[in-house]
């Protein structure tokens, strides 16, 4: 199996090349093209131990889909193309099993079968990030596919970094984060338009996205017709 990222411009997609019998898992509905020898199925049990009805419900709290889609290659070599919703990069994160990866709301697209896809409850802190009250937790060995709104920048945090809400894609679980105010006082934080920010501390990698999806949504939203 080989994952190719097609990133000619601002709208990257992933092309997963599979040999006979190989399987790949993605969030439900992420497939946009495939060779006709790919068998598509849906399941609540993607890979690892994260299955069942409860797993599906927990994933919904993490801003993901209830179901996973699975793709199995039959006969000769085949391919599956996966595309996220918004414009932006897709990235393969190699997981060696030493650290867990936490994906924030909606950034998970797919994974190889050796990875466990679970959820981790974040509570109020997760909610304040502007993401969701639960994040996707990835453990095990394999390749993880994530998407972002805009460019993905990998930052090695060595002591501390402040990130605006809506810009975090994924991070290694060796990092801790807390929600706090952007400026020294609450009034200034509010007036600056930044409000709440996330402070990451510890050592590890954080993957940030160049643009903020909800900011884009609130810019384009008012120009659209009313919803019923």
């Amino acid at each position: 199996m080989h994952i190719e990222t097609l990133d000619r411009g601002a709208f990257s997609s992933a092309l997963v090349k599979l040999s006979s019998g190989e399987r790949f898992v993605s969030e439900s509905g992420a497939m946009f093209r495939c060779s006709s020898n790919i068998e598509i199925d849906v399941t609540t049990k993607g890979s690892g131990k994260s299955g069942g009805l409860l797993g599906g419900l927990k994933r919904m709290l993490a801003g993901e889909n209830f179901f996973f889609s699975t793709y199995t290659c039959q006969g000769e070599d085949g391919e599956v193309g996966l595309a996220p919703t918004l414009q932006g990069e897709v990235k393969v994160i190699e997981c060696d099993g030493s650290r867990k990866i936490i994906c924030t709301g909606g950034s998970y697209i797919g994974s190889t079968t050796g990875l466990n896809i679970d959820t981790k409850f974040q509570g109020l802190k997760g909610f304040l990030t502007g993401e969701s009250i639960s994040f996707v937790e990835v453990s095990g060995q394999g390749q993880l596919l994530v998407s972002a709104f805009g460019r993905i920048v990998e930052i090695d945090v060595t002591s501390a970094l402040t990130i605006d809400t809506g810009h975090v894609v994924a991070f290694e679980d060796s990092l801790q984060y807390s929600a706090g105010k952007a400026a020294s006082g609450w009034v200034q934080s509010f007036l600056s338009g930044e409000g709440i920010v996330l402070k990451f501390t510890g050592e590890g990698k954080v993957y940030v996205q160049s643009h903020n999806p909800s900011e884009f949504g609130s810019t384009i939203g008012p120009m659209l017709p009313e919803r019923s």
Partner: peptide, 21 residues
């Protein structure tokens, strides 16, 4: 010719940002 994003998926995503009737 295949495009790498779906207008329908985007229209679903943008739904909560639209003004409420």
């Amino acid at each position: 010719w295949v495009q790498s994003r779906s207008p329908r998926t985007l229209s679903n995503w943008v739904h909560p940002f639209r003004p409420q009737k």
